[in-house]
Simulated scan of single mutants.
Amino acid sequence: MLKSVIFDLDGVIVDSHPAHMRAWKRFLVSVGKSPTEAELEFVRDGRKKEAILRHFLGDLDKDQIRAYGREKDLLFKEEVGSVSTVAGIRDLLNQLNHAGLPMAVASSGSSERVHYVLHILGLGDYFAAVVTGDQVANGKPDPAIFSKAAEKLQVSPGDSLAFEDSVSGVRAARTAGMKCLGIATPPRSQSLLEAGAHGVLSDFLGTSLSQIRKLFL
């Protein structure tokens, strides 16, 4: 039985990937790197900031990770004016809220950035729990972030539905024991299905609670 719904943030609740890509590119250029657009695709797969920094910059100590992470977050805040919600998400959140289903956010982003984005878009009050990348030891595809979200909602993972837009996120949700719907357009939609998503939506327009409940019949 469906008892809770857990959302990734970037690419699911908010259409923020273009802003993130610009912020990461600006940061990497500032430290002497010149990533191609193809190389920047690494950023899209739901990884923690620490993993992204080490991927592009090699071995870093914790102080460097914190400092570089702050620099990148400041650049993202300069880009955040271009961020909007994914089509149809507010209507779905209202449906779930009206039905009394608890909701959570499970994002690899930092706590500061995730809460900032939810605040400026006026979405924070919908969520009974917010779990971020700095609250778990391992990022997606490790299931810890989804397991922790279900724990905070006091709901079994098997009674939870996750919405994800990345392969690592889908794998994390499925490994946690949740059903998962992907948010993507071709060709990325096929990769989410192959990762274990029960279906893929391009956005939330026309998505109803009754449709979601059918996954649990």
Results as ranks from 00 to 15, higher is better:
Met1Gly: 15
Met1Tyr: 11
Ser4Gln: 03
Leu9Gln: 10
Leu9Asp: 00
Leu9His: 08
Asp10His: 10
Asp10Ser: 12
Gly11Ser: 10
Ile13Phe: 00
Ser16Phe: 00
Met21Thr: 14
Arg22Thr: 11
Ala23Asn: 11
Trp24Thr: 05
Leu28Val: 07
Leu28Thr: 04
Ser30Pro: 10
Ser30Thr: 09
Ser30Trp: 08
Ser34Trp: 08
Pro35Gln: 11
Glu37His: 14
Glu37Asn: 15
Ala38Tyr: 06
Leu40Thr: 03
Glu41Lys: 15
Phe42Thr: 05
Val43Met: 03
Arg44Phe: 09
Arg44Pro: 03
Arg47His: 14
Arg47Thr: 01
Glu50Ser: 14
Ala51Arg: 14
Ile52Ser: 13
Leu53Glu: 04
His55Cys: 09
Phe56Glu: 06
Leu57Trp: 06
Gly58Asn: 13
Asp59Ala: 15
Asp61Tyr: 08
Lys62Asp: 12
Asp63Ile: 04
Ile65Met: 10
Ile65Asp: 03
Arg66Met: 12
Ala67Leu: 12
Tyr68Trp: 13
Tyr68Ser: 07
Gly69Thr: 04
Glu71Asn: 13
Glu71Ile: 08
Glu71His: 14
Asp73Thr: 13
Leu75Gly: 06
Leu75Gln: 08
Phe76Ala: 01
Glu78His: 07
Val80Asn: 09
Gly81Trp: 04
Ser84Gln: 14
Thr85Ala: 14
Gly88Met: 05
Ile89Phe: 04
Ile89Cys: 11
Asn94Thr: 10
Asn94Arg: 15
Leu96Lys: 06
Leu96Gly: 03
Asn97Lys: 15
Gly100Val: 03
Leu101Ala: 04
Leu101Gly: 04
Met103Asn: 05
Ala106Tyr: 01
Ser108Cys: 10
Ser108Phe: 01
Ser110Cys: 03
Glu112Trp: 06
Glu112Tyr: 09
Val114Ser: 02
His115Asn: 14
Tyr116Met: 10
Leu118Asp: 00
His119Pro: 00
Gly122Gln: 11
Asp125Leu: 10
Tyr126Val: 08
Gln135Cys: 12
Asn138Ile: 10
Pro141Thr: 04
Asp142Cys: 13
Ile145Tyr: 04
Ile145Cys: 05
Phe146Gln: 03
Ser147Arg: 13
Ser147His: 06
Glu151Thr: 12
Glu151Phe: 09
Lys152Ala: 10
Leu153Val: 10
Val155His: 09
Gly158Ala: 14
Asp159Gly: 07
Ser160Ile: 00
Leu161Ala: 07
Ala162Asn: 02
Ala162Gly: 01
Asp165Arg: 13
Gly169Asp: 01
Val170Phe: 01
Arg174Ala: 10
Arg174Gly: 02
Met178Lys: 13
Leu181Tyr: 07
Ile183Tyr: 00
Ala184Met: 04
Thr185Cys: 00
Thr185Arg: 13
Arg188Val: 00
Gln190Arg: 15
Gln190Glu: 14
Leu192Tyr: 03
Leu192Gln: 05
Ala197Gln: 11
Gly199Ala: 14
Gly199Leu: 05
Gly199Pro: 13
Gly199Cys: 11
Val200Gly: 06
Leu201Ser: 01
Ser202Arg: 14
Asp203Asn: 15
Gly206Leu: 02
Gly206Pro: 02
Thr207Leu: 15
Ser208Tyr: 03
Ser210Trp: 01
Ser210Met: 04
Leu215Tyr: 08
Leu215Cys: 12
Leu215Ile: 05
Phe216Thr: 09
